[in-house]
Design a protein around this nucleic acid. Sequence first.
DNA 1: CTAATATATGAACGATTGTTCATATATCTG
DNA 2: CAGATATATGAACAATCGTTCATATATTAG
Lengths: 121, 121
Amino acid sequence: MDLCEMEEEVASDALDTSVCAQADVHLVEEALAVQLAETFKVLSDPTRVRIVSALARGYLCVHQLAEALELTHSAVSHQLGTLREMRLVTFVKEGRHVYYALDDDHIAALYRLGLEHIQHR
Amino acid sequence: MDLCEMEEEVASDALDTSVCAQADVHLVEEALAVQLAETFKVLSDPTRVRIVSALARGYLCVHQLAEALELTHSAVSHQLGTLREMRLVTFVKEGRHVYYALDDDHIAALYRLGLEHIQHR
DNA sequence: CTAATATATGAACGATTGTTCATATATCTG
DNA sequence: CAGATATATGAACAATCGTTCATATATTAG
């Protein structure tokens, strides 16, 4: 729907087009909006974005991530905890190591879409 | 690449597999990570998610959004300003009204992907 | 012109956040 | 068992954030 079509609709609904007509606005449910916001919030930190970019290639353990990101294990572990809470990553334990990966294809897709948006402007 | 493949690679690179091998981790550039995080941060607020969900249907002015969201014009205007800064929305002026819409298909796609991720678990 | 409508924005407050430090738990090696 | 490695987590502090209030700008109606 382009702007012109919409303008016509507004005009046909209200006698006085100088006053904003009450549009038939469709909103996502509040609870869903909160969950969505929480998910995006997890991705709203550069460190976590870099972790996601690394995990987009496959499984990595905390130690490997810490080395690659040049951060302490603690910092990486906290960020992974955040990613885990909102189920953006999964993990498997292998002895002392805990290998993390992106939870599903949606996460990798979100990451790539975000990149595309930034690069197309 | 699944976990098993990765494990083999690690083993073949290091004599002592009890110590984490330095993996060939590919990270997104820091500057890009920052921009990506900023973009996701804009979507990390329930009010802005609801605005995006409304604009996914087409152009709306501040007044219409404020009514639909049951918020003050000021609050909506501030949130739109935030969305505008990171170019998630565009707008056109029509007399006293300012009509907003999503900037491009990437934004609507991000919104829908986020919804899918939440609903598939 | 004045009054009303529509939107934008600066300041400020309380709330949330990301990081660091310290410490805890778990696993492996010898 | 002791010591090293790998990860997790609680506490706390500075920094950032979202909202509200008050005010400013712009357009239209009368």
